[in-house]
Computed example of a mutant assay.
Amino acid sequence: MLAFHSDAHSLALPPGHRFPQSKYRLLREHFERAPGLLRMQPAPAATEGELALAHTPDYVDAVLHGHLSAAEQREIGFPWSESMAERSRRSVGASIAAARAALEEGVAANMAGGTHHAYADKGSGYCVFNDVAVAARLMQAEWARSHRQLLRVLVIDLDVHQGNGTASIFRDDDTVFTFSMHGARNFPFRKEASDLDVDLPDGCGDAEYLDRLDQAMAEVWRRFKPGLAFYLAGADPHEGDRLGRLKLSYDGLARRDLRVLDALAERRIPVALSMAGGYGRDLATTVAVQVSTLNLAAQSWALWATARGTG
């Protein structure tokens, strides 16, 4: 399975900053020690024109050329630097590349991404550009040119925080269905309206979570028939997460991933994964959750490959 990484470009963060940027390097290094599971490639940088498919030109210019105000940088949570801008472009480029690969091969991944708090005109919550929104719009444009058909896109956002930026960007777009399942009392405290929102109580565990997911996915299939899906497979619903407030076990998260991947494979819907959030008290636990997600995605890709070879 193809997987794209962008951890070569670091953020200049002060000591004690809550954003665990080293998890992306640790995730890549794990799979470098397990060759054959993933075909890992460095992410390309998204162009200004690609970013402008989901973001205002003024905001794109401010990020790329260092014109963000101090208040805008505080809302994002990162100080501006050339490396921050380049990292953000490549995180979007990873989702673009993963989406193209998914349309060809069934399943592919961005080993970071899931920056769903970024709006069209601003960043927020450690999210600079909205990688899924840009990639979705670009895939629709490329699909229309090559197939002369509409590509309908499903966003399955299972990060513990609501995908408010994604919901805002696609608010009036009936070609994209946004589904977010998240902690009701968690950030962002003012939610946007997704096409389908599932709010979870603090302390929600495996049984309740998976039951709510089953109900929500059944509603998604009743209401929408996509040609491409993006899956934000956040590790932050895990019981050991500092910011999550939910109580999912490692096994519960694996069952979550299997439910999503199996449902998409059954319907032959290509999927591009993003790792999204994860802020474990023990960073190794967060990395282990995301290793599991990528392992399960690679298994799903193998089933697609078998079907292509015998179909």
Rank of each mutant, 00 (worst) to 15 (best):
G252P: 09
A98C: 08
S22K: 14
H65Y: 00
L303F: 02
S168C: 12
A108D: 01
S180G: 15
A34Q: 06
G227M: 05
D7K: 11
P188N: 14
L154R: 07
F31Y: 06
W301P: 00
L138K: 10
F179M: 15
Q73C: 09
G77I: 08
D251Q: 06
K191I: 13
L27P: 01
A235F: 01
I169S: 06
L11K: 07
F19H: 10
G77P: 14
H238C: 09
D262F: 12
A112N: 00
L232G: 07
E32C: 09
H55M: 02
E105N: 06
S124Y: 13
F78T: 04
R256T: 06
R223N: 13
D173N: 10
P57L: 09
S300W: 01
A94N: 03
P201G: 03
A297K: 00
I96D: 00
V260C: 14
Q21S: 10
A101D: 10
G113P: 12
R145I: 15
S292E: 09
R152W: 08
A62H: 03
L264W: 03
T56I: 08
R259K: 15
R145L: 13
R89H: 04
G16T: 10
F179D: 14
T175E: 10
V92L: 02
H161L: 13
W80Q: 03
L26R: 04
L151F: 05
D7R: 11
A94P: 07
V198F: 05
Q290C: 09
M84T: 07
S194G: 13
H182Y: 15
P57T: 08
A43M: 01
L200A: 08
W143E: 10
S69F: 01
G114D: 06
A136W: 02
I76W: 00
D7L: 09
S168G: 06
E266N: 13
E104C: 14
R39N: 03
A112V: 09
G309S: 07
L200F: 05
R267H: 14
V176R: 15
S249G: 04
G311H: 12
L27Q: 01
G277E: 09
A184H: 14
D197Q: 14
K225W: 13
L296F: 01
D211T: 14
M181K: 10
D131N: 04
G165K: 06
E75P: 00
E29Q: 14
T293D: 00
Q140E: 07
F189C: 14
I269W: 05
L196Y: 08
D174M: 06
R100V: 09
K247A: 08
M111Q: 02
E142M: 14
V153A: 10
R18Y: 12
A144K: 08
L200D: 12
D58H: 10
T166K: 03
A298P: 00
R28P: 10
A307F: 03
R212K: 15
T175Y: 12
V271L: 10
N164S: 13
R89Q: 10
G93K: 00
S22F: 11
Y279L: 12
V132Q: 02
E82P: 00
Y119I: 12
V132H: 00
M40N: 07
H238Y: 10
V132C: 06
A133K: 05
A8C: 12
G244D: 03
V92D: 02
R268I: 11
A235H: 01
R137P: 04
